[in-house]
Design a binder for these strands. Structure first.
Lengths: 343, 343
DNA sequence: CGAGGTGTGGAAAACGCTTTCCACATGCTA
DNA sequence: TAGCATGTGGAAAGCGTTTTCCACACCTCG
């Protein structure tokens, strides 16, 4: 194995096998065109002897397309997003796709920038996760940015290279939050508080709205002082929970619109000497696997995180589809120790 | 803004600006060569009017190199790896680097495969995280696979495009584990058990070895029945903890070689009705941020996860460096509620 | 035995850029 | 005024592939 041989290209392989460039190419990329057994074997051997590795950029040029899929997330360290990312990576592998990862660090206004970067890479498609871009105007800009293709602000958006509309994969947050509210009412709670997350994030809004609807349906109202907004993070949850306490909320059950916040709230409550779950019940949303071991274990809404990524990729790989497609996944309430009931 | 104009290339821009291809290129990539103000402006306008976006593959061809950095991790959904990944992504951004993410799904034998894939992409460098490849023989193979460049089995390895040796970034696991042991002895514990993780993972072995050394130095031995191996995951921790109980270990303090396992163990113990931390103390390693809210909060070893990624990238971006470089980070013991002491 | 496949190999164009190499004005200096 | 740097623009040669388009045998059928 010739070490330090630098870059070896197809020409080198062809020369060593004593064939033309065309023949070498045909052998190595399993073209439809048949090549004689003799030459085929010679090329194969030459390639392996030279430790030949085709250049992806060159192939991209010649073929007019790459095997790259862009993945843009708000924060890859957040377990919610890393779980989705994992599912996308897993789904991409069998198709031989390469994943280009970018993180906006929750500066959602930079989404367009990263989408543009993926476009430069000639990505076959782009999966936008947890986009905060829900505003019509911003959407238009994003659309302009990625030229003939489109993006939207759903939970997970797939921007295909060949379709104008953007397919989106969403979780039925509102309906699930409603179910959660009903379930908690069923457990006997009557006085609720909500750690509602950021106001401009559709996902957070939907969960909040659904939850309130569920309570209303059960004849329970949510006082505005029992609702506190904040960042969609662990620290955001901690801060919001503290704020709630400072306001002197008398709630017996607190709903955090995602698990990460719920877990931060758990710590805030504990730091204030509140005994959990006896004195205060807590519920979350997402059912993040790596958070299942907190105590008290979180009552939450399980959503099929692994499926979200798969579905987004399926959309990307599917043919054109002139229609904007949308796939909705429903959530399932899971009651655990953090809401012992009869609050 | 001409929508649906398909691919617009430099030639289109040049034509519209009424200049040559060369001039257009010079203007747009801020070449050293100066271009007249008049033409410069015309090209700029043409490019923006056409919404021109250069093709990265084409640039890679012409420039003979990409801005891609390959990142290979065992499992992006594991908070340990996602934290490191986040730090790499963050460090890459200011340099305009694109991250190609691949996950081996903990099938470490496939590392070489992914490294090869990154090579095809003409990656400027490769960062191998949590490689299990410690064996000399495997190392040689990997080295062959990535041609003139090298990889090693340290914690985080950086495979530069231009250097033969592989730089590596490691955590001083052994020393830190020793400190942890000493600290726990100081808290009064005398009978320990260890959830030691996989036997073939250097990181796990070092932590185990260091811990045992620390105990020995304090005159305490570890009975072989108090050591159980298993997967480096949450479920691995749960299983190992259960096994420990089944064996009837009388340990008063359990050390899990990483936080993820520790957290699984917490649940296993709780499921068996053991009161934590009163009846049994638990310690972990890593100080994973998203796991800081578990109860009882974990005594663990904090390691500068964010720095690991940064350092790996620094190595990659640095010039050749014929010597293999190695950067060691030390860990810091953090005592929390899971080891109340005087066990 | 000639016309028309068919199977196989090579030459060369194309993909979209960057970057040498040239050419041509200008404005200086001697 | 000849002789040169210097500044600016274009033509064209790559970069490493894929993929037409041709060419040539060799077969088969009428």
């Amino acid at each position: 194995m010739p070490r330090g041989s630098g870059k070896v290209n197809l020409i080198d392989v062809a020369r060593r096998a004593g064939v033309s460039l065309a023949t070498a190419s045909r052998v190595l990329n399993g073209s439809t065109r048949s090549v004689g057994d003799e030459l085929r074997e010679r090329v194969r051997r030459a390639a392996s002897e030279l430790d030949y590795s085709p250049s992806a950029p060159a192939q991209a040029m010649a073929r007019g397309g790459t095997d790259v899929v862009g993945l843009v997330v708000p924060d890859i360290a957040d377990p919610y997003f890393s779980t989705i990312a994992a599912s996308i990576v897993r789904a991409a592998e069998p198709h031989g796709l390469i994943i280009n990862l970018a993180s906006t660090e929750r500066r959602h206004e930079r989404e367009a920038e990263y989408v543009a970067s993926m476009r430069r890479q000639q990505a076959r498609g782009i999966v936008l996760v947890g986009s905060r871009t829900t505003d019509r105007r911003q959407l238009e800009e994003l659309r302009a940015e990625i030229a003939a293709y489109t993006a939207t602000g759903g939970r997970v958006s797939a921007v295909g290279q060949h379709k104008l509309p953007t397919d989106t994969v969403v979780v039925e947050n509102r309906a699930a939050a409603r179910s959660l509210a009903e379930r908690l009412l069923g457990l006997g709670y009557r006085h609720f508080a909500v750690l509602a997350g950021p106001t401009d994030l559709l996902t957070a809004r939907d969960r909040f709205t659904g939850f309130r609807e569920g309570l209303r349906a059960g004849g329970v109202d949510l006082a505005s002082q029992d609702v506190v907004h904040g960042a969609f993070t662990r620290d955001g949850g901690y801060a919001a929970a503290s704020e709630l306490l400072d306001r002197g909320s008398g709630a017996s059950c607190v709903f955090a619109v995602n698990d990460v916040m719920a877990v931060g709230a758990l710590s805030a409550f504990r730091d204030r000497g509140i005994r959990l779950p006896e004195e205060l019940a807590v519920a979350g949303f997402d059912d993040i696997a790596s958070l299942r071991d907190v105590w008290p274990s979180l009552t939450t809404v399980r959503i099929p995180l692994e499926r979200l990524g798969e579905q987004a990729l399926d959309f990307l790989l599917d043919e054109p589809a002139q229609q904007t497609r949308i796939r909705r996944f429903s959530g399932e309430v899971v009651v655990r120790a953090s809401t012992p009931g009869s609050g």
